[in-house]
Nucleic acid binder design. Structure first.
Lengths: 344, 344
DNA sequence: TGTGTTCATGGAATCGTTTCCATGGAATCG
DNA sequence: CGATTCCATGGAAACGATTCCATGAACACA
């Protein structure tokens, strides 16, 4: 019951707490004899140093915070895994938070992370620079943004160049004959939502496709909004013949509704999703995607965070994205496409 | 730069640190005047209490550890999300660890969690009761097992009754004419791996299907082993006409290879997976699954952990599993099934 | 007015470490 | 052999909060 402290170890080993501490931290100013006896006492008592006390005294907690919108999103699950493993190999544990795309949850979690005195924070931020993000900066807490950025906040980041992938996707769809592409957008409160929407808009304009504003549905990066988006877009008087979803979750929601409405993907309607997910290739027809490397993103984020913790100011990194064409978008536009099934 | 402590708050408010602390913790022995001035000082200084110091003195850290095998597994991602949200709503933050189905990683993480003095641990355990699991018990650290158990370790748990679902699956496959079912098993180092394997074995025997030991491939719950399993099973002299995978990740790996080998799922070979995943229903043909409720599991685990922390000893819970039949397994056995494609 | 009670408050101890500083014995050097 | 350096060691302070205990002001009651 009673906590075993370093004093217990020290007295069993016949040394002072100071010496025991030195042995524990590998301080060279210790005799071999003391080292041996302390080591023996530690295993004998199964002593585990109290990380709280250690953190209090040494002002480092050997923990980092990771705040994403939702680990159920395969993209963030991958990221969480990579970050956690990379951090662990450097001796840090990871506190995971889900903001669920809600600013108040993000702020709440950031507050907790600040209170816990984590050594650094990796966050896929949401909203503007107000609220707890500002506290982070003001307190000079080492922070790295992943996937997203915040306007006006100067923090190292690892992001994806969505522009290139989106442009390739639009041009590809245009090349197989589509002129009305429906876009299921991410929320404009996120930088990725804005950037991808802007990329879509400009690519559509440059390619000479329809710029009908009704062809854009604003979702929230969660599956349900993808479903709602498909309903909205297909119920237009002139529905699109191809769909582009700004993340994998909305794509899943969209696919479910396409199935339910009896539309054959790749034949009746083309579909492309942002974010690659292993099993998208297993769908029949396989889903075309805009792919980017989550592993690189996670690894780099941890690397950069460690640099910031060490006092450096690493350069932000922008990773490439690229279109991977699969069966869901490669057939030429079907003659029946564009007709509303209910009218058949 | 300099940390803002409770003393700064106290002196700005013109009270002692003791009084400031009382205001902070809502202790009634404080005057309205003091409360107001302390509150003002807190916002003025943007003071955040140091959770480390607080934890040191009060011996509770308001954090729990969650150790799963891999958050990239949708089942554990769901679980992580549910647990994190449930814990947060009770004022706890969640430390997430990935053991990657490796005992040494599990032990390493448990050690860290013990050192951090988390208030409780939720773990999907691996292996026997040796190593750090034993330390957990000995130190009486509140622990709840999820999904899996460990023989001989008496800890409250939330698990699934795999038996029922597996039996339904085997009977269903038998009813549509299959006699040789290939089983891609989980590792025998996990209770779920063992339990599901045992359920399969006995169901096959009871139904009078082939008990050929070659029809079982032992994987490790990760995607790659599902792929390897399909190769091994299809290369048998008498390959199975139906496959049952013990988790979703191995099912994904299996599906990928089935595709690659040109086998039509539901026609050339039937397939059923343990664990429901939203998008399994989106596959074409949709995948039959054995489903169980992850939300219930996560919610109950947190609930039970809080009870243990409060000194209680909650009863273990076993959740039901059930077969959901979709197109991947519902067609009668095809005449060509069972033939090795390469021999055609 | 004196005694007793209530109650907000401050001082000081405490949690388990790390780390600064002083000490004293051994070793080295001239 | 005396003086100097080296180095392992222990005592004590510090980290930032909480909490026990004592204090003294305010108030009530007889």
């Amino acid at each position: 019951m009673a906590e075993i402290t370093i004093k217990d170890v020290a007295s069993l080993a016949g040394v002072s707490a100071a010496t025991a501490s030195r042995v524990l931290s590998g301080n060279p100013a210790t005799s071999p004899g003391a080292r041996a006896r302390v080591a023996a006492a530690i295993t004998e008592l199964d002593y585990r140093p109290n990380a709280q006390a250690r953190a209090l005294r040494s002002t480092r907690s050997d923990s980092i915070g990771l705040l994403v919108s939702d680990v159920r999103n395969p993209f963030f699950a991958d990221l969480a895994h990579t970050v956690e493993q990379a951090a662990l190999s450097e001796g840090y544990v990871t506190l995971l938070g889900n903001a669920n795309e809600r600013k108040e949850q993000q702020d709440r979690y950031l507050d907790t992370l600040i209170s816990r005195r984590v050594d650094g924070i990796i966050v896929a931020p949401l909203g503007d620079g107000s609220g707890s993000i500002a506290s982070l900066i003001e307190r000079e807490i080492p922070t790295v943004f992943v996937d997203r950025t915040v306007d006006g906040i100067d923090v190292p980041s690892v992001t994806t160049d969505s522009e290139a992938g989106i442009r390739q996707a639009v041009e590809h769809l245009s090349s197989v004959g589509h002129t009305r592409i429906g876009y299921i957008s991410g929320p404009q409160a996120t930088s990725t939502g804005r950037e991808r929407f802007a990329a879509f808009t400009s690519a559509v304009a440059d390619t000479g496709l329809s710029q009908d504003p009704e062809l854009v549905y604003f979702g929230d990066f969660q599956a349900a909004s993808g479903s709602a988006g498909v309903h909205a877009l297909l119920d237009l008087d002139e529905p699109p013949t191809a769909l582009l979803a700004a993340d994998s979750l909305m794509a899943v929601g969209a696919l479910a509704i396409l199935h339910k409405r009896g539309l054959r993907i790749g034949t009746d309607i083309a579909m492309i999703a942002f974010d690659d997910v292993e099993w998208f290739a297993l769908l029949n027809p396989a889903l075309s995607v805009i792919s980017h490397s989550v592993e690189d993103m996670g690894r780099l984020a941890v690397e950069m965070l460690l640099q910031v913790i060490a006092g450096g100011t690493p350069e932000s990194v922008v990773l490439p994205s690229e279109l991977i064409i699969r069966a869901s978008s490669s057939s030429p536009i079907s003659p029946s496409a564009g007709l509303r099934p209910r009218k058949n």
